Amino acid sequence: MGGGATRLYSTLAHTLSSSGGSSHRVPLPLAHLERYQPADTNLDPDLCQGQKGSSLSPLDPAEVLRQCKEALSDRPPRFRRTFIQPSDSNAGTIRVMQWNILAQALGEGLDSFVQCPPEALNWSRRKYLILDEILTYRPHVLCLQEVDHYFDTLQPVLVRLGYSSRFCPKPWSPCLDVEGNNGPDGCALFFDESRFELLDCVSLQLSAMTIPTNQVALVMILRCRITMRHVCVAVTHLKARSGWEWLRSAQGSDLLRQIQNVVQTHTVRTSAGSSVPIPLIICGDFNAIPTEEVYCRFVTSPLGLDSAYKKLSQDCSTEPEFTTWKIRPTGECCTTLDYIWYSQDTLRVDAVLDMPSEEEIGPNRLPSFSYPSDHLSLVCDFSFKEDE
């Protein structure tokens, strides 16, 4: 990335860090960020033509999926994952995908996956694996972290598949330290426009003890076009690495507070004057195992949250054994860091996508030729309890 872009991001970071106070709506000049995103000339030109995808004709999801599979025909097959269904779904089911897709700059430059072949990390193939995963499950709501190819790939392709979206980059993204980077990574939230109407979107820079941090979140208020019910969806990516447990806890508390503030401004009242609670879905790479304080804060939150992926366990009380499995110079990491939280009083979990086996993942772990990220996608089907 050229010096002009680097100066832009440095100025942006300085502006955010000097604003002080608690979490706030981040005034990110995305139009300026977009200017520095190169066009992806390797992707099929019928899928992605520059950055103005909204002005192009719609795409057939089945055709895009076919093109992805054709581009990957010489690679090992993807994992075969099935849905575990605690109960029957209905026409009002909302499918949500949570996924840290692995920033391209980090995968190639900083994360050091020592047993992953360098060829498996090439964006020319990895982008097809990412699109293949998304289009296989066709979520109505898609929550992504470590997105550094938003403007040149994901947004232009997905907008032509009927998705609308917002992107919130980290103010001091480590991607910018990698030579040849594609800009800062951040969180992105996509929703199916045929299913939802956007009522509000808030971009947040999370704080710890009123001090702004490098972690961000997006919070959307959506209205379901089938049930006309409102739902609040949030996506975040908390601070990584051991030793930062206290910071993750503070960021999680700040996020919960900010979400509650957003929800309160969109309170729906009945004809009798009583308020109707807005269901919450909070997705993210929390970088926290289930015994960490930030996890406990979400479990005990007055918002009445539960973790959807506990439905995979027989007693519905424990998380999966892993959502990420990788090998770095420091050793092997197999643990659960990713979650989909939901309002257990107003939403019902209809189905949960299971995890691949150790044999399917393979001895070199993730990422690999058959999977583009070191984190596995989480996919859940929800329905409003009143619609049972």
Rank of each mutant, 00 (worst) to 15 (best):
L56Q: 14
K311S: 08
T323Y: 07
C187G: 06
S10I: 05
N42M: 07
L198W: 00
S17E: 12
S274Q: 15
A250Y: 00
N182R: 12
D345H: 08
W123Q: 10
M220E: 06
E193Q: 15
R166G: 03
E388H: 10
G20M: 11
S242V: 04
S164Y: 09
E179R: 11
V262W: 03
S373V: 01
K170P: 06
R229M: 13
V268C: 11
C187V: 15
A71P: 01
Y309G: 08
R95F: 10
D111C: 02
T41V: 04
N100R: 07
P372M: 10
A105C: 08
L337M: 12
F286L: 15
F322G: 00
S57G: 10
Q264W: 04
R241V: 08
L206G: 08
L106D: 03
E70C: 06
Q205C: 10
P156Q: 15
L199G: 14
P356G: 04
S87T: 09
G284E: 08
T300K: 13
S87H: 05
L142I: 01
F322V: 01
L238I: 04
V262T: 09
V231A: 02
F191Q: 03
P58M: 15
G21K: 12
G92H: 04
V216S: 06
L142T: 15
G183V: 06
R35N: 09
L238D: 06
L154C: 04
P58A: 11
D381W: 00
A188V: 00
Q115P: 00
W99H: 06
H14C: 01
P156L: 08
L255C: 09
K239P: 01
T346H: 04
Q145F: 00
A105L: 12
F384V: 08
D46N: 12
N364A: 07
L129C: 07
V157N: 12
D132F: 02
P212R: 12
V349R: 06
L47P: 03
P290F: 02
R241W: 06
N90D: 15
F79A: 13
L247D: 12
D148K: 12
A71T: 02
S275N: 03
A103D: 07
H230S: 06
D315N: 13
L204S: 02
L110D: 09
T330W: 01
R241D: 13
L16P: 03
Q215Y: 04
F167R: 09
G180L: 05
G92A: 09
Y339T: 07
